[in-house]
Amino acid sequence: MGNGDGTGFFTSVADTVDQLAATGYLASTAVATTVFLADRLGKPLLVEGPAGVGKTELAKAVAAIGQARLVRLQCYEGIDEARALYEWNHAKQLLRITAGRDENWDQARTDIFGEEFLLTRPLLTAIRGEEPTVLLIDEMDKADVEVEALLLEVLSDFQVTVPELGTITASRRPFVLLTSNATRELSEALRRRCLFLHLDYPEAELERRIVRQKVPGLDDTLAGSLVRVVGALRAMELRKAPSVAETIDWARTLLALGADTLDEAVVRDTLGVILKHQDDVRKAAQKLTLA
C-alpha cells in the first residue's frame, strides 16, 4: 500500500483540519487524522455514529475541498444491484433489435450489450469518472446484507465487473465514505476493507465553536450555557439524546426569540426543540428545575 494509491486531497493532519475548517466543518483531531489517512492510504472510510453528528456533512466538506464530484448512493431496505451498480436499458435494447431486423444474431448481440445501453448507477459512475470523485454511501445499515457483498469488489479493488463487458477498473480512485447509524452490525468482510471512525457528540469546547460558527448572532456566554445544558442532557439516560443538529436548532430558536439568558422559563418553552419524546421532556424538565 504505497502513497500513490490515495486521492491526494490533503498534505498533513494539520492541513486537513485547516481545509475542513475553511469549508465550515470543524473537525476534532481524531476526525482529521482518520480523514487524512483515508485520503493518503486510499482506503474507504466507514463513519459510524448517532444521527445528526455530521457524518454526511463530512463527505460534502471533503468533496468541496477536493473540488470533486459528489456521487451519493442512498441506501434503503430493498436496494439492489440494479439501483446501486448498473442496469441494462432493456427498452432501448428492444428498440435496437426491432430496428435492425435483417442483421444476424451475432451482430445484434455484440451491439446491444455495448456502452450505449448501459445505465450507470452511483457505484459504477464513481468508478468510471475521470475527474476527482467523492463516493458517499449513505446509511449503509439500512441496506440488506446482500448489498454488502456487492460492495466488496468496489471497496477493495475499486473495480466493477459487468459480465458482458468485462471488468471496469477505476482510472482514478474515488474518496469513499460510508456512513452507518449502527442499527445493525455490518459484516466483518465489509468492515475489514475500511478504516473505521466513530463520530460521537463533540466535546463541549468544539461544540461551542460549531454553534458560534453556524449561528453567528448568538451571544458567546449564552452559547456556552446552551452547550453545557445539552451536554448534561446527553449524560442522562434519555430515549433520544440531542444531536449537534438539534443544538444548532436550539441556538437558532433562542436567537429568534431574542433570549439573552438561559433561564427556566425559556428552557421550559423551548425544550421541545431538542428533545423529541414526551418522556424525555418530562425527565429533563425535572432535572433542570430540581437539581
Binding site: A30, T33, T34, L37, A182, F196, H198
Partner: peptide, 23 residues
Amino acid sequence: DVLGFVDREQVRAGLAAALLRSD
C-alpha cells in the same frame, strides 16, 4: 508510516481507525 511519531493523539486516532471495528 504515514503519521510518524510527531503527535501521540494522532497516532492513537490513526491506530484506532485501522484496528477497531466498533465503538
